[in-house]
Design a protein around this nucleic acid. Structure first.
Lengths: 134, 134
DNA sequence: CAGGATCCGTCTTGATACTG
DNA sequence: CAGTATCAAGACGGATCCTG
């Protein structure tokens, strides 16, 4: 049926899609990934699966709503899996899929960059604010 | 004056800052970086400096307002530099700083991921939507 | 425990039009 | 060319209350 291998299709996609173009669906996907909660959830799951309450605790201060919303969107996009264990009380585990794992490194890197270079950013801000009278 | 090397300070920062915590300023910084326009602007400048109009064209469909807003924020954070050449008409060049260059690879990787894995995401979405009656 | 549902302020986004 | 000003629309995020 398929006349191309997955690698070939990926190669074609690479030259076909361009996230710089607004009409391109990858532009929208980039918008999805460019979300603080997405970064944090994916980074939190990188070491291993976690339960809903674990995530709530790890992402200190996230509202249940935002957490659910983010988890649902990521599940839909095939980045993580949701496993319900029908015990009493219910137990729900979230884990990265292989696809999600391939993304986790990238988003974690951005998060780590923020932590590592914050001092430089702060210094830059102070200088900018001092040099900008208005 | 400084009793620590830059590397030592960075190491300390690493253990001190935690973007998972909402009160942590790096959490806010992560929010800044988690922006579609930021990703695109930084990725666009990665190969080399560009003028305002170049960026406008490259980021097809961005409004001048959002572009200016994004550029200003990134300049303030020390990620890019803004150089005005007082000719007629005026010429303004934007270029990544060394700090920005250290970030560019990471954000470009996320953008590339979106382009490369979009097909898998789309497939996952179709499956999810099919399996979710409601 | 793991959410779903609702309401509601506010903040950002995006067109559009204008300027040095 | 490189922005700034203005304004309407809507997405976003959070607080709250409730359920299986």
């Amino acid at each position: 049926m398929a006349t191309m291998t997955a690698a070939q299709r990926r190669e074609q996609a690479r030259t076909h899609y361009d996230a710089f173009l607004r009409e391109c669906p990858t532009n929208q996907l980039l918008g999805r990934l460019s979300d603080k909660w997405v970064s944090l959830v994916v980074a939190a799951l990188a070491p291993g699966p976690l339960r809903f309450s674990d995530l709530s605790r790890k992402l200190a201060g996230v509202s249940p709503k935002m957490l659910t919303q983010t988890l649902r969107a990521l599940e839909r996009d095939g980045i993580l899996s949701r496993t319900v264990t029908p015990s009493v009380p219910v137990r729900v585990d979230y884990a990265l899929t292989p696809l999600g794992a391939s993304l986790a490194g990238l988003l974690t890197a951005v998060k780590d960059w923020a932590e590592t270079h914050f001092d430089e950013v702060r210094t830059a801000r102070e200088r900018y604010d001092a040099d900008t009278p208005a």
